[in-house]
Write a protein that binds this DNA or RNA. Structure first.
Length: 487
RNA sequence: GCCCCCAUCGUCUAGUGGACCAGGACGCAGGCCUUUCAAGCCUGUAACGAGGGUUCGAUUCCCUCUGGGGGCGCCA
């Protein structure tokens, strides 16, 4: 019986959840849920100076918005905490001491400035830079001089010189790097805090992580971490490196191309369901032609061996479409609720005073036209504006004169006022009757009316719109359109 | 520069030696439907980076090249 799957997402607190991290989190989540495993949230803030509680909250908000709940870790329970690296210093220290004692690590007094000089020199001579192990080869006298001086020092891992570091990646297969390519990397900084590669190895092991699923930008880190894990006597987890998300120019997705944070998409009126669906398909596919997936369906369908190796361009056009698909598939009540914050922001409605039934009626008419929630205010404003301002030239019917159009609108007003019942069918009968009487095509008559009551040429179907708008608003608007045209 | 990884339509991708004059989706174009706009439906557009092998046969296997990406921090 295999041990239960334990996977983690380990963001560094940057105040926002990057979409690349969101996708990595999603894949971890899917893998965990599908295997009845445990999904863990760890905060990788070894660099304590750039982490604040607000920064962590910002990242967490992204996960919550997407609906990726974690079972264990920061802001949850768990037996392997603390789940914030800045609170695990003693663990890193004891492991460091073990490495030091066993000769797997050594103190280094070289300063960043000195190293910088060496690095530049290597660059100039077109050879790879590798730490020359100056401090490993110090004489006893030099070493004790340093020790007595109290000079700041870092701890370096003594990397193996012989052979190769190999592992099997679940998405890329056999990977190998010559040990000679590896450097003696710094595992503990001058201030005593661990670097990423060191803390990560320790935490993954102590937290009993079984599968490390992360971006391909960590591929090389795996080769660096493996020897450390081995020196520490750890069992190794399985690794799966995900293709990177890129900018349209194929470079690693960064800040340069617009929105890269989950929060940006929330603000732009995208639905979490759509974002999740979209992210899932960037680097993975189900093997059949299904494109629309709920989170539960993804849990069902996901598999690591259908993850691609090639990077994926983060292009929004499909997300835009997907968002429309999700908007159309949701209930009017739900869509209304989710639209209200956007409508309130734009000042279209006052959420405390709005007539919810009326709003829902309006939302129902715009539902299949909306692609994002941010479009709601512009789509719905005419339902709430005190008056609309039609463009006179659009009040003139196609192939008709302004005068004829004016007379037609006057007739429409009279007949509408005389109507005993105000509903879709009665309006339709009335208006089609007028068109027939005038000898006009229906569309010829409807457009001026549409413009009169909405102020725009593209709207939901006319009769429904008039029904929702109600007779009072409709008649007042037809009346004022007549005045505009008469002027 | 060095190491590693990757390579099918504009984009996301299917494809694991013949069923492929390469399939789906988004986008784009045209059409149908139609009271406008959408939605829906139909049609079209468009790709195996190049060159060598292996094979009766390569998008699929191998090599080289080219192109792209990642890494090369006391960042994560």
């Amino acid at each position: 019986m295999a041990s239960p799957v334990r996977v983690r997402i380990a963001p560094s607190p940057t105040g926002n959840l990057h979409v690349g991290n969101a996708r990595t989190a999603l894949y971890n989540y899917l893998f965990a849920r599908q295997t009845d495993g445990v999904f863990i949230l760890r905060i990788d803030d070894t660099d304590a100076k750039r982490s604040s509680d607000e920064d962590i909250d910002g990242v967490i908000r992204g996960f919550r918005w997407l609906g990726l709940d974690w079972d264990e870790g920061y802001a949850a329970d768990g037996d392997y905490g603390p789940y914030r690296q800045s609170e695990r210093q003693d663990l890193y220290r004891s492991h460091m001491e073990k490495l030091l004692a066993e000769g797997h690590a050594y103190r280094c007094w070289c300063t960043p400035e000195e190293l910088d000089v060496l690095r530049k020199q290597a660059q100039r001579e077109r050879r790879p830079f590798r730490y020359p192990q100056t401090c490993l080869n110090l004489s006893a006298a030099e070493r004790s001089a340093h020790e007595r001086s109290g000079d700041p020092f870092v701890i370096r891992f003594l990397s193996p010189r012989e052979g190769s570091v190999d592992f099997v990646d679940l998405v890329r297969g056999d990977l190998s790097v010559e040990a000679a390519e590896l450097d003696d990397l710094v595992i503990v900084r001058t201030d005593g805090t661990p670097t990423y590669n060191f803390a990560s190895v320790i935490d993954d092991s102590l937290m009993k992580i079984t599968h490390v699923i992360r971006g391909a930008d960590h591929l090389y880190n795996t080769h660096r971490q493996l020897p450390i894990a081995q020196a520490l006597g750890f069992d190794l987890p399985a690794f799966a490196h995900l293709p990177l998300l890129t900018n349209p120019d194929r470079t690693k997705l960064g800040k340069r191309s617009g929105a890269v944070f989950v929060g940006d998409y929330a603000a732009q009126g995208y639905l979490p369901e759509a974002v999740v669906n979209f992210l899932a398909l960037l680097g993975w596919n189900p093997g059949d032609t299904q494109e629309i997936f709920s989170l539960d369906e993804l849990v069902e369908a996901f598999s690591l061996d259908r993850v691609n190796r090639a990077n994926a361009v983060f292009e929004l056009q499909k997300l835009f479409w997907l968002n429309g698909v999700y908007i159309r598939s949701m209930s009017v009540a739900d869509l209304t609720d989710r639209s209200i914050p956007f409508l309130a922001d734009a000042g279209t409605v006052d959420p405390d005073q709005v007539d919810l039934d009326y709003l829902r009626g309006a939302v129902a008419l715009e539902q299949e036209r909306l692609k994002t929630l941010t479009e709601a205010p512009a789509a719905l404003d005419f339902f709430f504006d005190a008056e609309v301002t039609p463009d006179p030239k659009h009040l003139v019917a196609k192939k008709q004169t302004p005068e004829a159009s004016l007379r037609a609108l006057e007739l429409v007003l009279t007949r509408l006022q005389a109507m005993p019942a105000w509903n879709h069918d009665s309006i339709e009968t009335c208006l089609r009757g007028i068109a027939a009487e005038l000898g006009w095509k229906a569309g010829q008559l409807f457009m001026p009316i549409r413009v009169a009551i909405t102020g725009k040429t593209a709207t939901p179907p006319l009769f429904e719109t008039m029904e929702v708008l109600g007779s009072t608003r409709t008649l007042a608007r037809v009346k004022s359109a007549i005045e505009v045209l008469a002027a």
